[in-house]
Design a protein around this nucleic acid. Structure first.
Length: 600
RNA sequence: CGGGACGUAGCUCAGCCCGGUAGAGCACUUGGUUUGGGGCCAAGACGUCGCAGGUUCAAAUCCUGUCGUCCCGACCA
């Protein structure tokens, strides 16, 4: 210790701070499953004493939950830094003017938490930070020489979720890593995008998560450069369309196929549209049933939407369902909602169930009609007559309807064929843990984030944004790594790697003495240890350590110690006896091997 | 915002239909016993039955309202 060494108010842990004693921290495990937790990861979050609910969508992180969160954060930091990210921290409280400038004060109003200060001035709690970072860039990034830059932060986000659910999965307040790249060119933006894509792949692998990139909806911004990182799980809120063998995978909002498995009728009868009575028939199913027997495939479903305040008609084959994300993306509409019954009657003169777009039956021929590609060339179709209780048959779409534009608007179904390979597609549920998105110049233009190029010309920076739900990732790990006994943490994110469990805890007893020595040795080797010093029966300690999910438990009991042995019990693995003298080395070797498996 | 379910001890729940002294298990406290997979025995503490109003001699129980929670849907940068 040199003359400049002095005790710091806050110093790193020293061996005297260790080991962490179970009795000295706070791990309130629950034997029974809390009634308001539906999915296994939410139940285990509560049962293992990681979090407690304050109220719907708001959670307190207890010591163990916080430790896991910090470990995930650290993995994210390391990989973001490795990929050239620069860490910053932006305010959660934001002025509304930048939101008005970007246009999202209106379009995002559904999720914006708004607050007022004592002067009654309005502010928003940030659900995301494009506006803030772009304001910074507008002031600070003025030359192509400063580009590219990729700023990131790990920070609390606020979203006024209509229905928070599943614990941390969808919360009103949650921890997010968000990053924003600024490039001088489109090509540069693509490079930044791919760097983040690769970083995300490594991050989730290091967290022990099986997460897969899938093509994602790009909404009004368009383009093909958006991927979501998905963790397969039945409890997820997303549907992913994928090909068993091969690379294609897409969010169902974006997914495409070669079309319906059964062809659209195209044989002409030569007949012209004929009105027939269908009293009380207001569903596809009813028209398909006796006595009408018009199969769903032979029907044209007519939907009325209000897109950016203007009514539109959307046509889908009767057995298909509309994909609203596609509708918004293809029409460029920012806000789309289904028309109300009153609006529909006003527009078409009939109530839902008898609607159609046959030109001759439209009161207002000027209303735009968007039709799904599957209806191209359709003949012999049946659709509503725009008169309650009547339908039209012998409808030929090309002849009888005026379609403003044809788009792919239908939702892909299981078994349809991959566009590229013609192999059948499958669908499964998944949890979205990350999203990479090439933004282009939408925000840099609106918030004036421009730079001077080498030739003196001024351009908006080309942006990308990249998010990881940190708290959601934590829960996704639990959702993927558990069994009937509890959580099975990957070593990389486990709150403690090793749980040392002396079966008698008298201070001078052999199990406790050896436990302390082993803990010190392991800590010196950089392994995080918790020592279960509680005076509980072995069964209680075993159950608790398995519920919480420490990767390796080391049992020190008088019986095996008498035989010169210590027991190693990997979580979910088999018990192994090792000589006392070899125990530390065996544990270190085990932890190194496990850690190596998770290095991305 | 629509549909459904539920609010009783720290937790899981019974009691409610058919109104009449507030219950069980787990957890907690004390004592004893036990000690390699959530022990056993005994004693104890813990409740304005979510809240407000109404009906009634009498309300956890019936009625109305309200707040909260969970699920399905709508919504979701």
């Amino acid at each position: 210790m040199g003359p400049l060494s002095f005790p710091l108010a806050s110093r790193p842990h020293t061996p005297t701070d260790f080991p962490m004693l179970w009795s000295q921290t706070f791990i309130p495990t629950l034997k029974e499953t809390p009634a308001d937790a539906e999915i296994v990861s939410h139940q285990l979050l509560l049962r293992a004493g990681l979090v407690r609910k304050l109220t719907g969508g708001l959670y307190t992180f207890l010591p163990l939950g916080l430790k896991v969160l910090r470990k995930i954060e650290q993995i994210i930091r390391e990989e973001m830094n490795r990929a050239g990210g620069i860490e910053v921290l932006m305010p959660a409280l934001q002025p509304i003017d930048i939101w008005q400038q970007s246009g999202r004060y209106e379009t995002a109003s559904g999720v914006l938490f708004k607050v007022r200060d004592s002067a009654r001035k309005e502010w928003v709690l940030g659900p995301t930070h494009e506006e803030v970072i772009t304001s910074l860039a507008a002031n600070e990034l003025n030359s192509y020489r400063q580009l590219p830059k990729n700023f990131y932060q790990i920070q609390t986000k606020f979203r006024d979720e209509i229905r928070p659910r599943f614990g941390l999965m969808r919360a009103k307040e949650f921890l997010m890593k968000d990053a924003y790249s600024f490039d001088a060119s489109d090509a540069g933006a693509m490079t930044s995008y791919h760097k983040m894509y690769d970083a995300y792949t490594r991050i989730f692998a290091r967290c022990g998560l099986q997460a897969f990139p899938v093509e994602a909806d790009t909404g009004v911004i368009g383009g093909n450069y958006s991927h979501e990182f998905m963790v397969p799980a039945e409890t997820g809120e997303n549907d992913v369309v994928y090909r068993e063998s091969g690379k294609y995978a897409a969010n169902i909002e974006k997914a495409v196929s070669r079309g319906p498995t059964e062809a659209t009728p195209s044989e002409s009868t030569g007949a012209t549209p004929e009105k027939f009575a269908t009293p009380g028939v207001v569903t596809i199913e009813a028209l398909a049933a006796a006595p009408y027997g018009v199969s769903a495939r032979h029907q044209v479903k007519t939907l009325v939407f209000v897109a950016d305040s203007k009514p539109i008609l959307v046509l889908i084959r009767g057995d298909d369902s509309l994909n609203e994300a596609k509708l918004m993306a293809k029409t460029g509409a920012v806000q789309v909602r289904q028309a109300t019954a009153d609006e529909i009657v006003e527009l078409l003169g009939a109530r839902p169930g008898s609607l159609g777009a046959v030109n001759a039956t439209l009161k207002t021929p000027a209303v735009p009609v968007y039709a799904d590609e599957a209806l191209r060339g359709a003949r012999g179709m049946t659709t509503g007559a725009n008169e309650d209780g009547f339908h039209l048959r012998h409808v030929e779409v090309d002849r009888d309807l005026k379609v403003t534009a044809w788009y792919d608007l239908r939702t892909v179904k299981v078994g349809e064929l991959c566009v590229e390979t013609a192999q059948p597609l499958k669908i499964r549920r998944a949890i979205e843990v990350g999203h990479v998105f090439k933004l282009g110049t939408k925000y840099s233009e609106k918030l004036n984030a421009t730079f001077l190029a080498e030739d003196g010309s001024r351009h908006p920076a080309v942006m990308g944004c990249y998010g990881i739900g940190v708290t959601r990732t934590l829960q996704a790990v639990i959702e993927q790594c558990n069994d009937k006994d509890g959580i099975r943490w990957p070593v990389s994110v486990a709150p403690f790697t090793v749980c040392i469990t002396p079966l008698t805890v008298a201070p001078e007893s052999q199990p406790m003495t050896l436990a302390r020595e082993l803990a010190a040795t392991l800590e010196a080797a950089g392994i995080e240890v918790i020592l279960d010093d509680r005076d509980e029966r072995p069964g209680v300690k075993f159950k608790d350590s398995e519920l919480v999910g420490f990767p390796l438990r080391v049992n020190l009991g008088e019986k095996s110690l008498a035989k010169g042995e210590i027991e190693l019990k990997p979580r979910g693995g088999t018990l192994r006896m090792v000589p006392i003298a070899d125990a530390a080395a065996e544990v270190i070797a085990w932890v190194r091997a496990e850690s190596a498996r998770l290095q991305g």
